[in-house]
């Protein structure tokens, strides 16, 4: 008897849940894939944004880390999910680089870019012990010494700051490998190594070096952006100091697999916009020293496309692109 009752109950519940399919999006938890490890900057941005989107949409947004392969694994997982709005992810700048390196066929065109939510320009940082007080002085020294004398670090081989460095050197009419790049597991190990005397330059974002700059171990010489950064008003742009027009910035975006239904896309973009403008998100980004940048839908996709072309050019010239 009990058994039959249970069956009936289960059947009833099943009927209820299948009726729920007809309901409006979203009616079940959304999964947000972060292609980088728990604890990193991208993970923190994803988790906070997820918490705010959850408030907005009323269903849980579960952050899921899919790490490894310099981001290839996670980005593939986002792109290969069903485009039903229940899987979204944080897409990072690597999507514009890894296909040039020949690591994957995946490009930004396999995604529906929903919004760009952050951007941090690259910088030029040296150890305080090195005695440089301006980027001009550094550049002069780099030019006067033979190629390979200076070493730089801050990402893996062919990573964003490697490309940023190569692009800067090219813009100063130097060979892209005039400064030897030493691959590292990220900006923090690169900075530590620079302070320990292992390398000379770290061209990563200034936000990543903030604590070391505050501790007077690292000096920020320039920012690779068109304007000075709010968090670092004393650091000049490259254009101001050496006259180079090279700019590079990492961004983080929210993306979904390509082919999202239009109504779902609009709903998600609006939820992300509210989350972006929330006090919690704005405060968090400011406190962490991360740059705020907002672009939605097609505008965001255009930024992603522009960077893709620019990186392709630099990476080919620097020999970082696959033949």
């Amino acid at each position: 008897m009990h058994f039959i009752k249970t069956i009936a109950a289960v059947g009833g519940l099943m009927a209820m849940t299948s009726a729920a399919w007809a309901q409006e999006y979203p009616e079940r938890p959304i999964q947000m894939i972060v292609p980088w490890g728990a604890g990193g900057g991208t993970d923190a941005v994803g988790r906070l944004l997820g918490a705010e989107i959850q408030k907005e949409l009323g269903v849980p947004v579960n952050v899921v880390n899919r790490t490894g392969g310099s981001g290839v694994v996670g980005h593939s997982a986002i792109a290969n999910a069903d485009p039903d709005g229940y899987t979204i992810g944080i897409m990072t700048i690597e999507i514009d680089m890894m296909h040039w390196q020949g690591l994957t066929e995946l490009t930004y065109e396999d995604f529906d870019v929903l919004a760009i939510v952050n951007s941090d320009p690259g910088g030029v940082m040296v150890s305080a012990d090195a005695g440089f007080d301006s980027v001009e002085a550094l550049l002069e020294k780099i030019k006067s010494e033979p190629a390979g004398t200076f070493k730089a670090s801050g990402t893996g081989q062919g990573g964003i700051w490697h490309v940023g460095l190569a692009g800067w050197l090219l813009s100063e009419d130097l060979a892209p490998d005039h400064v030897t790049f030493v691959p590292s597991q990220g900006a923090a190990p690169g900075l530590t190594d620079m302070v320990a005397g292992g390398v000379d330059i770290v061209p990563s974002s200034l936000a990543e070096g903030r604590s070391m700059i505050d501790a007077k171990r690292v000096v920020a010489l320039a920012t690779m952006s068109a304007d000075r950064q709010d968090a670092f008003p004393d650091v000049p742009t490259l254009a101001e100091s050496t006259g180079s027009d090279w700019t590079v910035a990492v961004w983080r975006s929210v993306a979904a697999p390509a082919g999202l239904p239009e109504d779902v896309k609009v709903k998600l973009m609006n939820a992300i916009e509210t989350a972006y403008n929330s006090e919690a998100y704005q405060e968090f980004m400011k406190d962490r020293g991360f740059g705020l940048r907002w672009a939605k839908g097609d505008d965001a996709a255009a930024i992603v496309a522009t960077d893709d072309a620019a990186f392709g050019e630099v990476m080919t010239k620097a020999g970082l692109a696959a033949q």
Binding site: G39, D214, D287
Partner: peptide
Amino acid sequence: FGIPGDSITAIVIGVLYIKGINPGPM
């Protein structure tokens, strides 16, 4: 110095920043 020694301290440094405590000699 605000340098993470492992993934756990990396997370905590982030939380410290958010809470207005900037790790460093100061």
